[in-house]
Design a protein around this nucleic acid. Structure first.
Lengths: 340, 340
DNA sequence: TGCTGGCACTCGCTACAGTCGAGTGCCAGC
DNA sequence: GCTGGCACTCGACTGTAGCGAGTGCCAGCA
């Protein structure tokens, strides 16, 4: 059962060659291109074992071998050697990210950078509101019964919602409301706020309670429960690299998945601290992504994580390179956020 | 040279059949499906003339005819009959757009609705800042040398930028700054503001001039000149309908074009009042879109136009249906904006 | 003059047969 | 346990043939 070192070498060689050439790789070309020190026949025997164990397969009887999802998994877990970024890549990252004026700017630059470096589809989640705390809440009167609630989070995230008040509220009262919400919610994590928000209503003077109740419900419903996450996407054109071969000729399921924020969030949003996740083909919980792999990680200032980012591509991707790039970009973005 | 009525009927029939079936249409099937009142041989003669004039062409010698870009153009201009929306479609529009709480919400719902109804790629431009006026400018202190500038436009558009002040500014002075900018810019069109913004600096008391100058430059550079437009996109998966036939099998150029905001803005952003534009294949100024058609129009409350929206699809698209849908959605969105 | 039926022709599509060659599995021998 | 040799498989490619949708042209007719 156990795969000896040479069999693992063979698997690694198969993965590397197939990723590079997109063509099923045979025993002869394998020994030509890699220093395996044995003959094609020996390699064939090893291949037979690898196939039996489910790490590689033959597209047709008289063709070379192709890695299976399971083969890529083993490759990623135990065989791939770390591929450090080239100096050019490091410079590209720095040059791309300095000069970002704004969280929006940071996110957009990051997603384009990732897409460009990995030549794949890149996805970046804005810092999650649930992981942010309130820096400031601003109430801007629009008319006597309408105001704009603007929330600024410590992560730089800014969200606004129109609030339709139950009745006219004079300017002085708005000031009171503003003071109260900032006093009670300022510095608090949004995920901890629901009880605090409820309490707010009780603490308001009776005259302000209806207005505060509306404000509270807007805060709870729209900022915390719904729509709270945002996503940026770039590089969809990269799906067409590698011709019709990847994704079995139909981009449709992939493009459909990319349109669903919910799916994207699941892909890159579930982040444990300092972990990088690789999901290969079937390991994805969405059927549409059976032919794709996702490399994702969390990012944030210092050790805390405020959001996720990652890339999506064909299972036949350069895992070591992609992993290195995703990790590096996440670190740079984290540093950038820490500076603010 | 002139095309008599029957030849135009033949062209119309060819376009309609080809759009419906995706297959080159021959003289025999044409007379079977349409009441042309003449024999296939006659139709063939007409087709020969239409081909000579460049309205249709033969993919290969022994195939049926296919409309050229020029043929579609004639069809759109003179032959297509208006196709009213079905009640179901009207209902879908209403159901989809009511309950939008927010400009962001309106735009997102609109773009998804358009994509769904037309089954094509939909593009919606946020209300242009250049066509909006300032409702309110809010300055929210973040630290002593930093503040968040939040601009609320009458179109509902909200933009914010971080402003790095040249030195510490006390809270009272912030209040003065806020009052001043609102006094001078409130109600003004952003496209008219550059001279006003310059004047602002002179009108500030000397102590506030440096801060005001920074503020002014942020206002000018980031709100007016750069990044001022935003775009929402949906329905890219629809590009894969019609299999490999449309777009000659390569979505790449299309996807690349869709990633460039500049291109999208050119496509749907250049709007003259109450005009609907159809650009067919070669008529597009971007090479990447040689195989695509774009149907776009402006929208806005009442007669004014604040932005553009439209759809992009294969040249072989249902022009009458698409045109009707785009027009209807634009009107509904305009009404929605007028209510606010 | 304009429409029509008839007819020969074109040419892409499909099916089929044959060849080639990359790649395999297996086996005997070292 | 590795190796060379060998028979075998099967996809890719090529060439041929028949089919059929569709055409252009022409003579005849209203």
């Amino acid at each position: 059962m156990g795969l000896d070192d040479r069999k693992l070498d063979v698997l690694r060689a198969i993965v590397e060659d197939y990723v590079a050439t997109q063509e099923p790789v045979g025993s002869k070309t394998l020994v030509e291109r890699h220093q395996l020190g044995v003959s094609p026949a020996t390699v064939r025997n090893d291949m037979a074992v690898l196939e039996e164990e489910g790490y590689i397969r033959q597209p047709h009887t008289s063709a070379g071998r192709v890695p299976t999802d399971r083969g890529y998994r083993l490759f990623v877990d135990r065989l791939s050697r770390v591929k450090p970024l080239t100096p050019a890549e490091r410079r590209a990252i720095e040059r791309f990210l300095v000069g970002a004026v704004d969280l929006d700017d940071v996110v957009h630059r990051t997603v384009r950078l990732l897409a460009q470096l990995t030549r794949q589809v890149a996805v970046v989640q804005y810092p999650s509101l649930a992981r942010s705390s309130v820096r400031h809440l601003e109430l801007v009167p629009i008319s006597t019964t309408r105001l704009m609630l603007v929330m600024i989070a410590d992560t730089g995230r800014v969200e606004q919602r129109l609030v339709e008040l139950p009745g006219p509220v004079p300017a002085d009262d708005i000031t009171d409301l503003r003071r109260l919400v900032n006093e009670k919610l300022g510095g608090k994590r949004l995920s901890d706020t629901p009880p605090l928000v409820q309490a707010l209503v009780e603490e308001a003077v009776p005259a302000l309670r209806p207005a505060m109740a509306t404000l509270a419900s807007v805060l709870l419903e729209t900022l915390v429960e719904r729509h709270e996450e945002r996503i940026a996407l770039a590089g969809t054109a990269n799906l067409t690299r590698g011709g019709v071969l990847d994704f079995q000729g139909s981009l449709r399921p992939i493009l459909e998945a990319l349109e669903e924020e919910v799916i994207l969030l699941k892909l890159i949003g579930e982040v444990e601290p300092s972990t990088l996740r690789v999901r290969i083909g079937d390991e994805n919980e969405f059927d549409n992504l059976r032919l794709a792999s996702v490399v994702s990680t969390g990012y944030g200032p210092g050790a805390t994580i405020v959001g996720g980012l990652g890339v999506l591509g064909p299972t036949r991707m350069d895992y070591p390179g992609t992993i290195a790039t995703v990790r590096a970009v996440a670190r740079y973005v984290g540093d950038l956020l820490a500076q603010n």
